[in-house]
Design a protein around this nucleic acid. Structure first.
Lengths: 224, 224
DNA sequence: GTCTATATGTAGATAGAC
DNA sequence: GTCTATCTACATATAGAC
């Protein structure tokens, strides 16, 4: 959120409609290209071209490239964390949580967004996968995903009291990576099954994901 | 493998020891940096500096940057596929395969390498994760990983005759992504469990991975 | 095979006119 | 807010001497 170096409270005049529109176009173009080609593979000039503005305007509205990237990652992360945490809260106030419920509280909010009308939500998975894999953005992931991840790891541990915390954590990491892989690589599933690739997220595979992860986590309990 | 535009049979004179050494240093430096910072984040100059040679030599021995990248991905992929396929063959000649056996035939060759003495095998997971996530390298993945993936998807389907092929394929994709996430993000498991990060691949978590994935795949069978 | 020097393109960012 | 023009740095790659 640049073009806002000034505190919102201090800012005296409202931005014009055109300015707001430009701001939005820059952010949307940046999001699209960062998700497609990564941080280093995307130039400020590419973003300007995609947005249909001059590249000076990308700097004006987006700030330095790294700041722009962070803005892009952050805005959906915050929305997503709010949804996940609200759903988890609702479960926890009802009493002892059930594993499947907790799992769905984490997974469904994103899958619903990714299946919705905004196609950028689906490609956001690719962005998150890139950010997660790159040590250079570790403070970013820690800030925007860390707290929620900790909360869910704790809730999962409550559902699986006889499983060591470390193993629950591993199962959660596997779950997140499987969820991301479904969103970024469903075409691989199609290819392996000898089918033509489908553009949208398959609801059947969403159910397969949850079943896979639930059983995987339950299997970490030692036989009594 | 550049500095070999000529057919090996046509090449008249053996390369000097120093030349062989330079060739190796270039490839090792490239592998290290590509795995750390990705294709676009790594410059030929970075590679030259890491290898301790001039950047003209990187071009001479590695060829154009894209060709060098492909070389790096390919050399370990081929070694790995050979190990996996050999292990799978051994199982299949014994009769009807068991799910756990097939899973281990895929997963163990890499985990063993990643746990071994060559630290580059572990960081190779990061390279593969990057390559998998980026559509630009899809022909590369198709060539070097596609055939083996198809073979294993087929073998898994034989172990789970009542599960639709598409769901088996999904389970396999989840398995691969979980395996990669263990190798690239074990530090996340440590962090979630509130422990100090461990450098080496934890054998206990390797077992957790296999158990998680086996149970996940079995859970795709419908209750009879 | 390896070096230095350089050709040629593109990167991020901003100055200053409007 | 938005434009054009430009600064400075760095990218990939190769030519040609040794």
């Amino acid at each position: 959120m640049y073009a806002a170096k000034t505190d919102p409270k201090t800012r005296q005049r409202a931005r014009s409609k055109r300015a707001v529109e430009t701001h939005r176009k820059v952010l949307d173009a940046a999001e699209k290209l960062f998700a497609q080609k990564g941080f280093d593979g995307t130039s400020v000039r590419d973003i300007a071209a995609e947005a249909g503005v001059t590249n000076a305007l990308v700097n004006f509205h987006g700030g330095p490239k790294e700041k722009l990237f962070e803005t892009i990652v952050a805005r959906r992360a915050e929305e997503l964390s709010a949804l996940r945490n609200a759903r988890l809260e609702a479960i926890l106030t009802e009493g002892e949580p059930d594993l499947r419920q907790v799992l769905e509280a984490f997974v469904q909010p994103y899958l619903d967004m990714a299946s919705g009308t905004d196609p950028q939500w689906l490609s956001y998975a690719r962005l998150v996968a890139m950010v997660s894999a790159d040590a250079r953005w570790s403070t970013l992931t820690a800030r925007y995903f860390g707290p929620t991840a900790l909360r869910f790891a704790g809730a999962l541990a409550r559902c699986l009291p006889d499983v060591p915390k470390r193993e629950v954590a591993a199962g959660f990491v596997f779950t997140v990576s499987a969820m991301l892989s479904l969103c970024t690589a469903q075409w691989r599933v199609d290819a392996l099954a000898g089918q033509a690739p489908v553009a949208a997220l398959d609801p059947g595979l969403q159910e397969v994901l949850v079943r896979f992860c639930e059983a995987g986590l339950r299997a970490l309990s030692r036989p009594v």
